[in-house]
């Protein structure tokens, strides 16, 4: 991981004098895995706050505003399916198919952008504002935080695309080093687990509320006066799915970093170079 290495043509071939290094040449994937642990803990913490708050309130969703279902539904489908599109792009890199990479990554970026546009449209058309109720607050902050991650992932994809405009740059790849399928697979399963547990939490009718945990009536009274969408409404579920689509940017981010690692580019420099 030294400067000479950085400036040689093959960035993956770590200088052989460092046995320890050549034994573990690809540390970025490991680093990314640890980073993901930390990222998911933020989401876990926020969801926990959401669930605990919900469990404290006797009536979580009094009759209130209904949120439309169509747009969020389409949005969710687009985002989820873009993962598969992205995977095609990853496969293309493995096959040294540069045009394929550009096509599939471009499509992914487009789908991501559509998702973000849809989210922005939705924000502008929801009947409640950030401070209308505690549900509304959680809704905006959690989806917003997720949207922020998607934006970041989108930027990474665009960066990869920008770099791949010159033929040959993206493809100086040692494919043997690269195991995205196993990595994404693990991640995918993990996210599925996360997602399903969220569904259970969200749709469980008998809440975890304990009478002793309940707030005193006056607060519940305040809450009952606010307009909150029904928990059981399909639109809410769809949003819940969207909330948990964290895996999207995870995929985007990791793949982009992996790709970046394979060429002489700023990411490589960013993560592993050594300067004085």
């Amino acid at each position: 991981m030294q400067s000479p290495t950085l400036n040689s043509t093959s960035t993956l071939n770590i200088s052989s004098e460092t046995a320890a290094h050549s034994e573990h040449p690809d540390l970025r994937m490991t680093g990314m895995a640890f980073f993901l642990v930390a990222e998911s803990m933020i989401f876990l913490g926020l969801f926990a706050a959401f669930l605990i708050t919900r469990s404290m309130v006797a009536v979580w969703q009094p009759e209130g505003s209904e949120v439309e279902i169509l747009l969020p539904g389409i949005n969710t489908i687009i985002l989820i399916s873009s993962s598969f599109v992205m995977n095609r792009g990853a496969t293309a890199i493995k096959k040294n198919d540069e045009a394929g990479l550009r096509f599939w990554f471009g499509l992914t970026a487009l789908m991501g952008a559509i998702f973000l546009g849809g989210q922005a449209y939705e924000y502008l058309h929801t009947p409640f504002g950030l401070t209308t109720s505690i549900f509304a607050s959680f809704f905006y902050v959690l989806t917003g935080f997720h949207g922020l991650h998607v934006t970041f992932g989108l930027m990474l994809i665009l960066m990869v695309l920008w770099r791949s405009r010159k033929p040959g740059t993206t493809l100086s790849i040692s494919t043997s080093e690269w195991k995205p399928p196993s990595f994404t697979g693990t991640l995918w399963m993990w996210c599925g687990l996360f997602c399903s547990s969220w569904f259970i939490c969200c749709n469980c009718k008998v809440g975890v509320a304990h009478p002793s945990n309940l707030r005193s009536p006056n607060i519940d009274y305040i809450l009952s006066k606010t307009e909150i969408p029904k928990r059981d409404s399909p639109s809410f579920r769809v949003r819940a799915v969207r909330l948990h689509n964290t895996r999207r940017e995870v995929l985007i981010g990791s793949s982009a970093l992996r790709t970046g690692h394979c060429s002489r580019n700023w990411l490589n420099f960013w993560l592993s170079s050594k300067r004085y």
Partner: peptide, 10 residues
């Protein structure tokens, strides 16, 4: 016995 951390810039 390493030469540096895994991600020096980070």
């Amino acid at each position: 016995g390493a030469k540096d951390m895994a991600f020096p810039v980070l």
